[in-house]
Amino acid sequence: MNDIFSFASSRRNFLKVAASAALATVFTHPVMAAVSPSQREHHVLSFYNIHTGESVKTCYRSNGKLINRAIKRISHIMRDHRTGEVKPVETKLLDLLHCIVVELSPCSPISIISGYRSPRTNAALRRVSPGVAKNSLHMQGRAIDIRIPGYETTTIRRLAISLHSGGVGYYSESDFVHLDTGPIKVW
């Protein structure tokens, strides 16, 4: 009789433990999903400014927290190379670039064709190029023109469009892609 009671008790305990483990898995899964991988990782970006010859590789977000010193370094390399003016770059733009880098895994830094533009520089460029917007998001630190060595600009364009994160412009003659955090549009 003790053997039967012992077996039943062991079986009951086993079932309780198994049920508890199953419930724990079910109820913790949504909590785990709420903490996306992007909040638990390091967001590293690498840039090369084609006009100044400067490079920077830095982690601007770690475990979901922004690193202000890194954002200042990125803002500096993205400055208006004509005037030297610096404007803080919008972190949403950095996150967009990070998504592109994660997808492509480039071996080379992102080449900056144009980052921040002062109003004076933007006005001067508008006088010589009809493609420069009067209220360009470059003047707000919300746009960048890039190339990524080793990747066709058409590939970068397609990927950026698929992310639905803002404006994507393609300039085939100058071989660069414009990215911004404004309304979703493609040209």
Results as ranks from 00 to 15, higher is better:
residue 1 M to L: 11
residue 1 M to W: 15
residue 1 M to A: 11
residue 2 N to Q: 13
residue 8 A to P: 08
residue 9 S to H: 14
residue 9 S to C: 09
residue 11 R to E: 09
residue 12 R to I: 15
residue 13 N to F: 12
residue 14 F to L: 12
residue 17 V to N: 12
residue 19 A to V: 09
residue 20 S to D: 12
residue 20 S to V: 12
residue 21 A to N: 11
residue 23 L to N: 10
residue 23 L to S: 07
residue 23 L to Y: 13
residue 24 A to T: 09
residue 27 F to V: 13
residue 27 F to N: 08
residue 27 F to R: 07
residue 29 H to C: 14
residue 30 P to Q: 03
residue 31 V to F: 12
residue 32 M to K: 15
residue 36 S to G: 09
residue 36 S to T: 05
residue 37 P to E: 14
residue 42 H to L: 13
residue 45 L to F: 00
residue 45 L to S: 01
residue 46 S to V: 06
residue 48 Y to K: 03
residue 49 N to G: 03
residue 50 I to D: 10
residue 51 H to K: 07
residue 51 H to Y: 13
residue 53 G to T: 06
residue 55 S to G: 08
residue 55 S to R: 09
residue 56 V to A: 06
residue 58 T to W: 11
residue 63 N to Q: 06
residue 64 G to M: 09
residue 64 G to D: 13
residue 66 L to A: 08
residue 66 L to H: 10
residue 66 L to C: 14
residue 67 I to L: 11
residue 69 R to E: 15
residue 69 R to L: 13
residue 70 A to K: 04
residue 73 R to E: 06
residue 75 S to Q: 06
residue 75 S to H: 07
residue 75 S to A: 11
residue 75 S to C: 10
residue 76 H to P: 13
residue 77 I to K: 00
residue 78 M to K: 10
residue 78 M to Y: 14
residue 79 R to F: 03
residue 80 D to F: 00
residue 82 R to H: 10
residue 82 R to Q: 05
residue 84 G to I: 07
residue 85 E to T: 14
residue 85 E to N: 05
residue 87 K to D: 03
residue 88 P to I: 12
residue 88 P to H: 07
residue 90 E to W: 15
residue 91 T to I: 07
residue 92 K to P: 00
residue 93 L to R: 00
residue 93 L to N: 00
residue 94 L to H: 04
residue 94 L to W: 11
residue 96 L to S: 02
residue 97 L to D: 04
residue 99 C to H: 14
residue 100 I to Y: 04
residue 101 V to K: 03
residue 101 V to T: 07
residue 102 V to F: 10
residue 102 V to I: 08
residue 103 E to T: 13
residue 103 E to A: 06
residue 104 L to I: 05
residue 106 P to Q: 01
residue 108 S to V: 11
residue 109 P to N: 03
residue 110 I to H: 02
residue 110 I to S: 02
residue 112 I to C: 00
residue 115 G to Q: 06
residue 117 R to H: 03
residue 118 S to E: 02
residue 119 P to S: 10
residue 121 T to A: 03
residue 121 T to P: 07
residue 121 T to L: 02
residue 122 N to W: 02
residue 125 L to M: 10
residue 126 R to V: 05
residue 127 R to S: 15
residue 127 R to Q: 12
residue 128 V to F: 08
residue 137 L to C: 10
residue 139 M to Q: 15
residue 140 Q to V: 08
residue 142 R to W: 02
residue 142 R to L: 03
residue 143 A to R: 01
residue 144 I to L: 01
residue 147 R to G: 05
residue 148 I to N: 02
residue 151 Y to E: 13
residue 153 T to K: 01
residue 154 T to Q: 10
residue 155 T to S: 05
residue 156 I to P: 03
residue 167 G to S: 06
residue 168 V to T: 02
residue 169 G to K: 00
residue 169 G to L: 00
residue 170 Y to W: 11
residue 172 S to I: 14
residue 173 E to V: 13
residue 173 E to T: 08
residue 174 S to Y: 15
residue 176 F to S: 00
residue 180 D to I: 01
residue 180 D to E: 01
residue 181 T to G: 04
residue 182 G to W: 00
residue 182 G to Y: 08
residue 182 G to R: 07
residue 183 P to C: 03
residue 183 P to D: 05
residue 184 I to V: 14
residue 186 V to F: 01
residue 187 W to D: 04
residue 187 W to P: 08
residue 187 W to V: 04
